[in-house]
Nucleic acid binder design. Structure first.
Lengths: 197, 197
DNA sequence: CCAAAGTTAGTGATTACTAACTAACCTTGG
DNA sequence: CCAAGGTTAGTTAGTAATCACTAACTTTGG
């Protein structure tokens, strides 16, 4: 897995993400992407070996960002509950600033279209899950989250709620404040899985 | 919205769903669909006016099924808690029997590819949400579900958990028992949003 | 008999990608 | 110092393959 990327490659990735977020995955064509980049179709292939490579690179870029941000949060916030909150805050502000990567969260539909893309998406989901699992598990140990329910189930509940929130934001055309609404939604979830109530 | 469908149309819809679930949406082409149906491409157009119409018809068919099943459950189970459980039981056994419609749950990704498909998918999500909202709201009124959290948030949590469960089932290649695992996951969710604990 | 459901043989449009060429910008050796 | 050579990033003009879809004709069941 290559994670190093040239500035020009990043521009292309961002443009591709924007196209998908705006008009859907089916509308991401090399022609349209080249138009957006204000250069010819052939120029794309000076930076990427294939269209698939652009997608994979984009998902890997997002994965790297998630890793970085989650590790930063883990360093900043020690206690499970504020840390869980901070993790979502980080996601919300990131996607607010980079809505072009929203599609990667829901990329599961063009899954099975190519093994490489498939793998990259699974990796992204897994990275998110692992970071979530760590904090939830710790919270259970320290007694702030309920112990009666298996860690993986709590993780599934939290992650599922987060994903649906992102999806509804996207469906609404980003028509509401993802951070504000997300904060209160996550407050609700945390209060539910919390032991204090 | 047309919901009446010929037997032959249903066969085509099922074949299309199977193709998408097996190989991804990008692999649903008129050529491959015709091959599956063991007839020529042109024959497709004796039953549907366009490829888009097939998709829309498929989603509407699923929507109709959801409506029917949820109404049946509402008639069978009065109390909110067992009714919520029965709703998910119904979904699990339905998708177990008809995995070809799984993609429609995640269809939100190829949204914006066409307005008609877009509308049909939104309608499906809305129908599911409304049935869920009804039972959750009733449970809050009767005091079996927590009142401190707004209905719509509880609905988002339950629905998000359900969707992620379905997604993981799909990612795993339907490699586990969706009903068994789903039952305990939903037990966990219901215990969390319940007032008894 | 005729309509419903199939066939063959195409259509133009679009797709991702490539070959061949070039202008501008390093790098390096005499 | 400076020119020869190499690299980078662009260009134009294609390519074969595939796409959804159609026209015109045929078969068949009630």
């Amino acid at each position: 897995m290559k994670t190093d990327i040239t500035p020009r490659q990043l521009e292309i990735i961002e443009a591709a993400g924007r196209l998908i977020t705006e008009d859907g995955y089916a509308m991401l064509t090399t022609k349209r992407l080249a138009e957006r980049m204000q250069f010819s179709e052939a120029a794309l292939y000076r930076h990427f070996s294939s269209k698939e490579a652009i997608l994979v690179s984009m998902i890997e870029h997002l994965t790297a960002s998630v890793k970085l941000r989650m590790e930063e949060v883990a360093r900043r916030e020690e206690d499970p509950e504020p840390r869980l909150r901070a993790m979502f805050e980080s996601h919300f502000s990131y996607f607010k600033a980079h809505p072009e990567y929203l599609m990667a969260i829901f990329a599961t539909n063009f899954m099975e279209s190519s093994p490489a893309t498939d793998r990259a998406i699974k990796e992204l989901m897994e990275v998110m899950r692992q970071h979530l699992r760590a904090v939830v598990s710790e919270g259970q140990k320290s007694g702030v989250f309920v112990k009666a329910i298996p860690t993986d189930m709590l993780v599934a509940i939290v992650m599922g709620t987060f994903r649906l929130h992102m999806l509804q934001w996207r469906i609404s055309g980003r028509g509401f404040d993802i951070a504000r609404k997300g904060r209160s939604l996550m407050d609700a979830v945390i209060s539910l899985i919390g032991t204090s109530r």
